[in-house]
Structure formats: structure tokens, C-alpha cells
């Protein structure tokens, strides 16, 4: 499937930078750490033959969404001391306990999970192959998604404008 060394290097990068996102003091460092996470995930997607998904991961997530985040961080000029952490220890302990619960559950599932006895054919997720399914079987959800984006744009304008 993937070369083991490549997988372990990439997953190490993903986990380390994701931990960096939730521990960084300055919001800008958190955003930059998330860029590393998303780029490593994109590399992992390429190893899994999901080429189209890897491309839009870089273009939309690392490109558009995170640039938007950086814009807002710089616009609001957040000083490091403005970054709030949970002050109450109950919140931190509840959060960590929840995290370990999820970890335990996924460990149980991923140990029990059996790969299909007859693995499906290797299909490359190229733009042509994904697009063919997207515009036939998933045409209606695709149109609904465009409507959702339109609502998102209008909502952002209405919320962020000073006076309508």
C-alpha cells in the first residue's frame, strides 16, 4: 500500500504539527503548524492514490482557508498574552479524558478491523475519474453544495459589514 518508512515519517509529521496547533501560544504559530499538518496529509493522500483530493487539499485548505485565517489573525492583531487557555483544571482534565476515550475506542476498532478478504481494484482518484462520478451519481449534492457556499458568502458579508 504505502512504504512503511514513508508512512511513519508522514504520520510523525502530522501528529507533531497537530499537537503544535493545540499547544502554540501565538495564534499565528498555530495556523502555520496547521499548514504543515495539511501538507503532510496531502502527501499521504497522494500515497493513497487520491490525487484529486490531494490537489484540492493544498489549493482549498492550505491555500484559501488558512490564508483567510492568517488574514484574521493579523487583522485582529492578537498579542500572545491575549491567547486564552482553559483556566479551570476541570476543563483540561475533561478534555484530556475525552481525548483518551476517543483514542481507546479507535485503538479497539482499528485492531479489530479486518481488511476486506478480496481487496477492491486499485482505482486512481484522478480528476477525470472523480469528476465522472461527481457529475453523474452525485450531481444533486454537488448543486446543493454550491447553494451552501452561496449562503456562506452572503452570511459572511451580512455579518462582517459595518452597516448594510
Amino acid at each position: 500500500m504505502i512504504h512503511p518508512v514513508l508512512f511513519y515519517v508522514l504520520s510523525g509529521l502530522i501528529v507533531a504539527s497537530a499537537v503544535g496547533v493545540i499547544l502554540a501560544r501565538h495564534p499565528l504559530y498555530a495556523v502555520l503548524s496547521l499548514v504543515v499538518t495539511l501538507f503532510s496529509l496531502s502527501a499521504l493522500f497522494i500515497c493513497l492514490h487520491a490525487f484529486f483530493v490531494a490537489a484540492i487539499q493544498v489549493l482549498i485548505y492550505a491555500g484559501a482557508v488558512l490564508v483567510l485565517f492568517i488574514f484574521v489573525v493579523m487583522l485582529l492583531d492578537m498579542a500572545p498574552e491575549v491567547v486564552f487557555r482553559a483556566k479551570s483544571w476541570t476543563m483540561i482534565s475533561v478534555g484530556t479524558a475525552l481525548g483518551f476515550l476517543i483514542l481507546w475506542q479507535t485503538a479497539a476498532v482499528s485492531l479489530r478491523l479486518q481488511a476486506p478478504s478480496a481487496p477492491g481494484p486499485v482505482i486512481d482518484g484522478t480528476t477525470a475519474a472523480v469528476g465522472r462520478i461527481l457529475f453523474t451519481a452525485y450531481a444533486l449534492p454537488f448543486e446543493a453544495a454550491s447553494l451552501l457556499l452561496l449562503v456562506g458568502i452572503i452570511g459572511a458579508i451580512v455579518l462582517a459589514k459595518k452597516q448594510l
Binding site: 508512512f7 504520520s11 502530522i14 501528529v15 497537530a18 499537537v19 496547533v21 493545540i22 495564534p27 498555530a30 493513497l48 485565517f69 484574521v72 489573525v73 485582529l76 492578537m78 491575549v82 491567547v83 486564552f84 487557555r85 482553559a86 483556566k87 476543563m91 483540561i92 475533561v94 478534555g95 484530556t96 475525552l98 481525548g99 483518551f100 476517543i102 483514542l103 475506542q105 479507535t106 485503538a107 476498532v109 482499528s110 485492531l111 478491523l113 481488511a115
Partner: peptide, 26 residues
């Protein structure tokens, strides 16, 4: 199994972040 385990670890990290961080942006 390896990939699902990695996905679970990533989900747990994100969940801890949502619960413990208090800045709306983070």
C-alpha cells in the same frame, strides 16, 4: 488499520484542542 489509527489519533488531538483552548480562533 494503521491509517484508521492515525485518523483516530488526529481526531483525539483535535478534540482536546476544541475543549481546552478558549480562544474562538483556535
Amino acid at each position: 488499520n494503521h491509517l484508521i489509527a492515525l485518523s483516530g489519533v488526529l481526531f483525539a488531538i483535535g478534540l482536546v484542542g476544541v475543549v481546552t483552548r478558549r480562544n474562538v480562533l483556535l
